[in-house]
Design a protein around this nucleic acid. Sequence first.
DNA 1: CGAAACGTTGAAGGCTCTCAAGTGGGGTGG
DNA 2: CCACCCCACTTGAGAGCCTTCAACGTTTCG
Lengths: 261, 261
Amino acid sequence: MQAFVRAPTVAAMILLKTIDPAVPHAGHRAACGACHACDVRTMAVCAALEPDEIGALESIMTARRLAGDETLVEEGEPRRRVYSLTSGMLRLVNGLPDGRRQITGFLMPGDFLGLADDGVYSASAEAVTPSALCSFPVAGMDALAVRFPKLNDRLFAFTRAALRRSRENQMILGRLAPVEKLSTFLLMLSQRAVEHHLPADPVAIPMSRADIADYLGLTIETVSRSFTKLRNQGLIDLPDARLVEIRDRKALEAVAGTLRA
Amino acid sequence: MQAFVRAPTVAAMILLKTIDPAVPHAGHRAACGACHACDVRTMAVCAALEPDEIGALESIMTARRLAGDETLVEEGEPRRRVYSLTSGMLRLVNGLPDGRRQITGFLMPGDFLGLADDGVYSASAEAVTPSALCSFPVAGMDALAVRFPKLNDRLFAFTRAALRRSRENQMILGRLAPVEKLSTFLLMLSQRAVEHHLPADPVAIPMSRADIADYLGLTIETVSRSFTKLRNQGLIDLPDARLVEIRDRKALEAVAGTLRA
DNA sequence: CGAAACGTTGAAGGCTCTCAAGTGGGGTGG
DNA sequence: CCACCCCACTTGAGAGCCTTCAACGTTTCG
């Protein structure tokens, strides 16, 4: 649980290349400076605003950087700020008193944090990899959502998309077998990598086996064995534990249970 | 899967008492007539509007009734209408090609159908019990959401609540043992019964064991055995398969894993 | 009155989890 | 610079639990 920064493995290197190395260290404000040069300006919430309106958003924005495994917000905490992820990856975590945990989602660049929450955060948000975010005070964002209906609409659309994904996850958790779960997960990662203009053939797996297990409702051993099973069947290759090459996508989709009926 | 209408068991009777028997048969239009006399006007989306604004909503509204097990909308179908449930209960169902299914949620009076969807319905909606709904064309509802920001806000708030519930379900599906799942489910039913001013001590279980199984990611046998286990431990009583008396709420909450950390 | 559906219970098997050991990579400290 | 250690991951063996298959009781409805 300590703020341990992974060494740059092959997989991490691929992921890290989206982070501008020229930028100063973590924890600083407004490192990236201008929204109009932002990597995710076309897919994040800010895309709802015209170039001449971005300033209003920028004026209430603060930049924030997180080291790997750093916690951004804690479950149950009053929701005072909302965030837009610009690089890296976050996990949404819910915990049980006895230590069991469930990861309800992974946030990728362009995703918004705080959609589901009302009053208090309903989940903790932790950095999977070093990450950069735009931070907004809730009051300010609410005011802007009133002033710019298009911004509100986009937040609403993001929330609907999150709800669809969450319900898809219910299907995955409730009705798929381990290898089906993992196949679906890998295909999802691959698809989202494409959407985010990241390498999709050797897919980077930024999260640990423990994270995958807590996301899919399995143990780390079962996750590992499922990886091995897919590798032995020739559907994937594992040049590195954090890197997956999809060797037979069709077969992988078939194993995934063809979630899209 | 046929439109089979259950006979009025003890449990069904309790539930049916929220349906006005004076109202004509199913499938008719605007049976309940006036929104200002609606049972759920304080908790449904329409509560966002002032009394003098309700007319605008009412003018695009059509009443709809469903028999038990009747399908309202089908997964993948173009989303042309949205609905507000006024009485009865609906299940949201997602299916896999091989017949496996996952119920992602149950809708109770006041709940809104169509929140997650964008373009096509992402799940089928089927009546668990005979139900009554207000039906709205999507275009008309969208226009009203623009005209009445408060209506839009309420739809947004409903969507956030649905997302929170869906994520809670992810925890239930991924990390709870069968008896924990069932306990959580029963407590949830009891709580929502209170919210909907229905009897909460002997809780009516409108849905079948198969529905519960598909909601909790179990088999009907495991659901049945979990019921028996809770009964043998004295936490609940089962005067009827569709009726649960909570005899030891504290213990039941403890078994539920105390989902609220 | 019989057929069908729902729910419960029993027995056996398979599969995941648990416990445990082993491997490999990378960072740390001598 | 090298050795050691730690952590992540993998793999193995056994147990436990849920699922599967099956039978039975009950209720409902044709």
